[in-house]
Amino acid sequence: MSNSADSPQGPVRRTLRHPVRVLTAAVFALAGLIFVTSANTAKGTNIRTDSSLLKLSDLIQQRSGKNAQLDETNASVREDIDTLVRRDDGSTKAEDARLKELERAAGTTKLTGRSVAVTLDDAPPNATANPGYPDPQPNDLVIHQQDLQAVVNALWQGGAQGIQVMDQRLISTSAVRCVGNTLILQGRVYSPPYKITAVGDPAELKQALDNSPAISNYLLYVKAYGLGWKVDEHKAVTLPGYSGTVDLHYAQPVK
């Protein structure tokens, strides 16, 4: 009984030591594998999330700014091409006049004239209901796509010769879309306040705004919760020509 190898405790202890050594070795091997995988993934960069990395909103704004630069470059190149075409195509004055008329109708050239500008904005922070109105819901306090579309539609109906939303000219294929209260227009992102400018007869444009049922509904929220609404008349404004692509993109069936 004096030999520890013959005691009950001796074999039990030896049996426990072996799996502990194996488990320890496995843990170190797994840790090494994780370190190697992390190094290969990072490739020398910091893969931990911190405040220095771009947030999604920052990335969207960065891409929007890049799209704006590309639009300006595209417009400059298009002007150069148009100049060369007019110089070398041998077209008549009548054909040149017809081409300019088509460009004006398409919205690809500058347009100058009297105008009306409409500005819409979210309600002030911590806005409350005015007396006689129910407490607002979050959606009652921000500009929606339907509000911007209502203004654009009314201005077209009022005889607008051209419309600009923020700093971009609208054409027949332009889509005014919002995600939340953020406007996405032709690949660029905008936040309120939103300004819509239309060239045309100011009296007719303002009358069309007054006659719009959708705008009348919006004005109820202006009165109730303080949403922004401002209409200005200008004697002479120049709208830029549309500088984006005019090619149509559509889905095609897979062959």
Rank of each mutant, 00 (worst) to 15 (best):
226 G>E: 06
216 S>V: 15
247 D>S: 07
174 S>W: 08
236 A>R: 11
199 V>S: 08
179 V>T: 07
246 V>F: 06
215 I>N: 09
238 T>R: 09
225 Y>E: 01
203 A>K: 04
187 G>P: 12
244 G>M: 09
216 S>F: 13
186 Q>L: 08
249 H>G: 00
216 S>W: 15
223 K>I: 01
173 T>N: 10
199 V>C: 11
215 I>K: 09
240 P>W: 03
192 P>K: 04
223 K>V: 01
245 T>R: 03
181 N>C: 05
186 Q>A: 10
233 E>W: 01
227 L>M: 03
178 C>K: 05
181 N>W: 00
202 P>L: 06
215 I>M: 09
179 V>P: 01
242 Y>G: 09
194 Y>K: 05
177 R>M: 14
196 I>R: 00
197 T>H: 06
242 Y>L: 10
188 R>Q: 14
238 T>H: 12
192 P>N: 11
201 D>G: 05
179 V>Q: 07
193 P>K: 01
221 Y>A: 10
183 L>E: 10
191 S>H: 13
237 V>W: 01
184 I>E: 13
184 I>M: 15
210 D>Q: 12
195 K>L: 03
245 T>S: 15
228 G>R: 08
230 K>I: 00
194 Y>S: 04
234 H>Y: 11
225 Y>W: 09
232 D>M: 02
214 A>D: 14
241 G>D: 05
230 K>R: 02
195 K>W: 00
191 S>W: 08
244 G>W: 03
197 T>W: 15
197 T>Q: 10
